[in-house]
Design a protein around this nucleic acid. Structure first.
Lengths: 207, 207, 207, 207
DNA sequence: GATGAATGAGCTTTCATTCAT
DNA sequence: CATGAATGAAAGCTCATTCAT
């Protein structure tokens, strides 16, 4: 999962981080940036702070990243990769001839798990960080893959599977985001809310 | 709906914009900032650009706003005010003994209308602009009011009205945001998607 | 005591403040500036603050003063005028064939009185305000006049009267400034210190 | 004698200038600021001008100083340090059982030497630069140390040594300042004036 | 390969001064 | 005459990026 390739011709050839040590450095930088992003928001992210927190020099940051955006790109990439991993897992789980209820549950809990991992970073990423068009595209692609996968398993049960899968995925994702990442007040525990949401989705698909 | 009052004691007293000329200036500044925000994102918003686009001098910007954030605050305030207005309208519409289907439709179309007005600004506001804790609170309060209102009318038909109203509102809002503001690809026209979402919500409440 | 004439050709002809109302306005402006200078130091003095404090508009300030420096110039002028008045008084007092002790006493107490009037303004004027070369010259001229006057009366008693008068005047002025305007800690009351200083000066002249 | 520690929590951590290169940079900045202060007064001191004159970039200025005031603080610190050094020297010179005349001469010439070093900077520092309360305190402390030292050696000869030392020190300092730093016209050469002042002080202490 | 001092474009903010009303 | 909104040059300050060591 390389950082989205930058267009501008790189003055300084970037190191490729093949060596273990290099990998550790790259990792430290990305982790540091993610941590600052989660703690202080995008406004707190600056290359000197990243370098300091990562325990390396600014110079080293620029050995591995063409610019600041590229670090954010890798953070997003990793996030998306997690999403893709989860998707792969889910794909295995879903594959067989599953009941609608189980499909919905799998999906809903999948999104919840995804959002429960580091919600502060998740929020900063979703609501502060400047995301490039290319990254947006990648996010859309991931979403699209999920929809396709869900549509596939749904198609055994319903017609207009893609349309319904889209509604299913978008609802599950959006509600998980709102209830876990945004810290909105809820009239009942998140678990109860989620149960209701599941019920709603199941009803929709079964109806 | 005044701009959220700034805490820091203002050394330079801010002008109050009571006169028509002043009001026009303030308006031009806020509009310009909103336009830049919609066009170039928060990163493109800087006081010189705002002044240039508003056709005023930087000095005038600082006559009326203590700093850049305060301009954003007013933009958000205006947005929330629109939401509140719409809420008031909706409240009138909902008031009577309405059928569930009509309640859902009113709500769904309400959120759609809300998001269809300047979606690019809406996106920038939702996903880039640094929103203060106080503003977040105001947003939460607005959402809470809407939930309460919906819960009220729902309570004639269902039990656990608040819980269900929350699910209803959050789903309608989130999907409207995703399908209108985010420019995600959809397998069917937005109208069809919306119809499906309405169906899902109605089924949930009626079931 | 007019404001020291500015060199630059005035775009806008300055009003001359002959009318009583105009005089009152000029006065209010100068007083306001002096008050701010005493309260907040030179850094706190800005034309808008002056206008506000004087209860007039900035525009009016520029009716009577070509620029900000000119206001300071008038403040200094008035200060110097007070000094000159005191000098005239003293001249009358000194005129006759006075004893050395009385000359010294008159001088020392003259300087004390001068510094005791609004010491905070005095300090701001002496240690923060940017004084032009012309103003420095005027200050030097006043000092010179005082020296001459003192030398005159001293010449009845001593030779090298001018030299001694210079020492006398500069010492009395400097010590008064230090002990009254600067808020330095003293090992005895100012009165006792002053008595000692007088004794020193008298001894010097009589020796 | 470090620059008076700034209170505000530094968001941008300041570099410490331990390396020779850094030290040279810091030095160049302080020297440049002092030079501009002497040449153009405090009003001419701005960070861009300092950087230009120091042959460094503005950025470097802010690497080492949190703000403009901090540079002034260091200039004052250095000045005070010089004063303290001179005091230490003088302390050695005075220590023994010295005659009154020699004490006075040492003191008078000490202050003269102090003021003869860069009188223009001295004047700008004394009469334009905004000095913080803390710096004022440090100045007062230095003066107090000098007074104590002088009182000590005087106490062998006179009673009320502290009071007399105060008069001695303040007079010597004030006259040196006036005759050397202020460019006042004198009726005789500075040397002659100084001789007279010394005579006056000696007479006072011996009387 | 690292390092971190240095750079400087770019932004924010102030305030003396002007000028339309 | 007076007003005060508007102006914009000039400073202050930040931080992504470069480069000498």
């Amino acid at each position: 999962m390389p950082a989205e390739s930058r267009k501008k011709t790189p003055k300084r050839p970037l190191r490729q981080a093949k060596q273990p040590r290099s990998k550790a450095t790259v990792n430290a930088i990305v982790e540091a940036a993610a941590r600052i992003l989660a703690d202080d928001g995008w406004q707190g992210v600056n290359t000197n702070a990243i370098a300091r927190r990562a325990g390396v020099s600014v110079g080293s940051v620029y050995e591995y990243f063409p610019d600041k955006q590229a670090i954010l790109a890798v953070i997003i990439d990793r996030h998306l990769a997690e999403g893709e991993d989860m998707l792969a897992d889910a794909a295995n789980g879903l594959a067989g001839g599953m009941a609608i209820d189980d499909i919905v549950s799998a999906l809903v809990f999948g999104f919840i798990r995804l959002h429960e991992d580091d919600p502060r970073l998740h929020r900063a990423l979703a609501s502060e960080a400047p995301i490039s068009a290319a990254q947006r595209k990648r996010i859309a692609a991931l979403r699209s893959k999920i929809v396709t996968l869900v549509a596939d398993v749904l198609s055994e049960h319903v017609d207009e599977a893609e349309l319904k899968a889209t509604l299913l995925v978008d609802t599950a994702d959006a509600l998980a985001h709102r209830w876990i990442v945004d810290e909105v007040g809820l009239p009942a525990s998140a678990d109860i809310m989620i149960a209701q949401a599941s019920k709603m989705l199941k009803g929709y698909l079964s109806g």
